[in-house]
Amino acid sequence: MWFLCEPGYVPDFNDLTLLPFCAGLTLLGLIASWAAWRRRGLASGVRGVAWSLLPVSLYMTGLLELLWDVVKSVTSWVTHLIFSPTVWAGVALFGVSVVLYVVSGVARTRRGDAPEKVAKPKQVSDAIGELTASGPPAASAKPTKQAKPAKAPKAGKSQESSEFDEIEDILKRHGIN
């Protein structure tokens, strides 16, 4: 039994010990289900029977052996990962490569070797009236308001006339005058 103390030891799947173990779990579950049915009612008893039948059903379908193999493989992998200096050396090299990649990117941008930025496409307001390879701008593209020099109020007109002038300008731009 000294081999049980070795790291990474997982016993093999054994039909002779697993079948009686599953049958015992099912029998204990059925007894507990009967007791739950008597105390808490039909729903608790039926739920207990459902859980009680799982160990034998897993054994009979072969899923218990599959589950055992998965647990055994994961345990072996984890112990190999933890106790292997080769794996830790590989993890360290991976970390060094990531750090070097990041440092090279920082050094590249500081030195000015960064790739040139792609020119931004023209905005709709810049492209109005311009024919491009894709054709004229879409009908939904509305021109933005062009900056016009502000009109200086005339000395003889009041505030009301300047408001009317603004309204008149707006109507002219929309073709209503």
Rank of each mutant, 00 (worst) to 15 (best):
C5H: 07
E6K: 13
E6L: 14
P7V: 11
P7R: 07
V10I: 11
V10G: 00
P11F: 02
P11D: 07
F13P: 02
D15L: 12
L16E: 13
L16N: 05
T17I: 11
L18F: 03
L18W: 02
L19R: 06
P20N: 00
P20E: 02
F21R: 07
F21L: 12
T26F: 03
T26H: 00
L27M: 14
L27C: 13
L28C: 13
L30Q: 05
I31P: 00
I31Q: 11
A32W: 07
S33I: 04
A35E: 05
A35F: 09
A36P: 04
W37V: 00
R38G: 01
R39H: 06
G41K: 10
L42M: 13
L42V: 14
A43R: 13
A43L: 14
A43C: 08
G45P: 10
R47S: 13
A50Y: 10
L54H: 01
P55K: 00
S57P: 01
S57D: 01
L58R: 00
Y59T: 01
M60L: 15
M60W: 08
L63C: 04
L63I: 02
E65H: 07
L67T: 06
W68F: 15
W68K: 04
V71F: 11
V71D: 07
K72L: 07
T75L: 14
S76M: 06
W77M: 14
W77Y: 10
T79K: 03
T79G: 03
T79E: 12
L81M: 15
I82T: 09
P85D: 05
P85R: 05
P85W: 12
T86P: 03
W88D: 04
G90H: 08
V91A: 11
A92L: 15
L93C: 15
F94R: 10
G95Q: 12
V96T: 09
S97Q: 06
V98M: 07
L100F: 09
V103G: 09
S104P: 00
G105S: 02
A107P: 01
T109A: 08
G112T: 13
D113G: 09
E116L: 12
K117Y: 06
P121G: 10
K122N: 07
Q123C: 13
Q123G: 15
A127G: 02
I128P: 00
A139S: 10
S140F: 06
S140I: 04
S140R: 12
A141L: 03
K142P: 05
P143S: 09
K145T: 10
A147R: 03
A147T: 07
K148M: 12
K154W: 01
A155V: 14
G156H: 14
G156P: 05
G156Q: 15
D165H: 01
E166H: 11
E166V: 06
E166Q: 13
E166A: 15
I167R: 08
I170S: 08
I170T: 06
K172N: 08
G175P: 01
I176G: 00
I176P: 01
